[in-house]
Amino acid sequence: MRRMILACLVLAAADVSGAEFSIRRLAPEASLARSGAVRVDHADLLYSTQFVATGEGPLSAQQQELLDRLAATLQSAGLKFDDIIKLNLYVRNEQDIADITAELSRRFNSSALPAVSWVVTTLPAADARLALDFVAAHNPAQPPLKLPESKAGQRLLSLIPAATRARAFISGQAEKGEGTVADSTKQTMASLFRTLKFLEMKPADVVQVKVFIAPMTQVQDSLGAVQAAFAPGDCPPVVFVEWKSPSLPVEIELVAATSEPQPFGRPVVEYLAPPELKHSPVYSRIARVQSPATIYFSGLYGSQADPDSEAELRDLFAQTKTLAEEAGSDLRHLLKATYYVSSKGSSDQHNKLRPEYYDPARPPAASKAIVTGVGRPGRTITWDMIAVPKGK
């Protein structure tokens, strides 16, 4: 058995070393400083923590400071702006988006635009007007990346090597606990760790934690509980988004990855649920994937300002389908969906239409959050997706 495992590892290493790294940027929109989707094959993937502007000075000063800090972090790891394949941006004011987009256009090469998503939300720093997190790609045939050291037990960046055997996207889970943000975070992390155990993964395999929190003023209590869950090990990168929930202080989702050999015969994507959690026909509790390719979508919007309408939602599904097909995928190979809504009408229409578009045996893992705004005037819903090319 040991010889078989070693042989599998040698073969896996040979496959990766001989694989071809590539990045395809689909449907670029220079005016929006984004690509509609980005497909990356045979790459090391780097997930970041949330970078928040210092909150000092006007928007121009804040975005300059934040993007300079981002550039320095990338450079220290051996990367540059054009290596970013997915950029998630969080703003306090929707009217700031145009100025930030113009600055992004100056920073990125027009032929290397990332997939981009926007959310209007309260930010972790009181006076900050901008925050972000990213996914970057690295060619494993190039010199290895140099990840920055953890600070106070907190990692800024997490690496998923190209040789990784399996990745898992775990949908948002929520435990009310005693009703406080701190205890809800603690209990939810315990629930997520039980899900990791179901996957035969461990806390050290977690690449990124995303917390939907209400209210954002309690962010330090939640962060402390997340860090305590991983202690004495380092805490992975953490991202916070304020959501409007009447009853749940937090919902938390995870990205995890393992290099442990996987059983033969597993499909490219598995849509799973631990025994204690119900399966839903419109979202999966877990999407586990074994694929050397990943497709990241930009946040999509209806083409017409017709909020809360069925037409707006159908247009979004049509756009998703078109981009997926252009990248070699389809709606049956979506891994992860993040839905942001700012009105009950859009949320209700979305719930109504999802069963029509998703295969009930394989809907994507997902989180849905009611937020202040979705990043475009006259729109009340946006979503971004992660997918893999079509396979078994």
Rank of each mutant, 00 (worst) to 15 (best):
I381M: 04
A305S: 11
L145C: 07
T380G: 09
E260F: 13
R155H: 06
A12C: 11
Y358T: 06
A229R: 10
A174I: 00
A182T: 02
R107M: 13
Y296P: 09
Y296G: 06
I381R: 04
A256L: 09
L123C: 04
S105F: 08
A229L: 02
A61P: 01
S367F: 03
C235P: 08
A13V: 12
E251D: 12
A72G: 11
A256R: 05
A324M: 02
E103D: 15
E260V: 13
L130D: 04
H42I: 07
I370N: 15
R376M: 12
V255Q: 00
I84C: 04
E253Y: 14
E178H: 15
F134W: 06
D205F: 04
L74P: 02
A163K: 15
L335A: 07
E103C: 10
P246W: 07
A102F: 01
G328D: 10
P267T: 09
W118C: 00
P237G: 01
G233L: 09
I85L: 09
F198A: 08
Q218M: 09
N88G: 14
R266L: 15
T217R: 14
P246N: 00
G153F: 05
P114C: 03
L147H: 04
A318C: 10
L335G: 07
D68W: 00
Q262M: 13
G57K: 03
P261E: 05
T49P: 07
L130G: 10
A27Y: 08
S158K: 02
G57N: 00
S291F: 10
T101Q: 11
K278P: 06
V255Y: 05
K321D: 15
Q262N: 00
F81S: 12
T258H: 10
R362D: 02
P148D: 05
L192I: 00
A361C: 04
P363H: 03
Q63L: 02
E242A: 02
E356D: 13
P360W: 04
M385K: 10
P28Q: 11
A30G: 05
R314C: 03
Y47G: 01
V16G: 04
R129A: 00
T258E: 04
N93Y: 14
D15R: 14
R24K: 13
P363D: 03
I295Q: 07
F317Q: 05
G233P: 12
V52R: 06
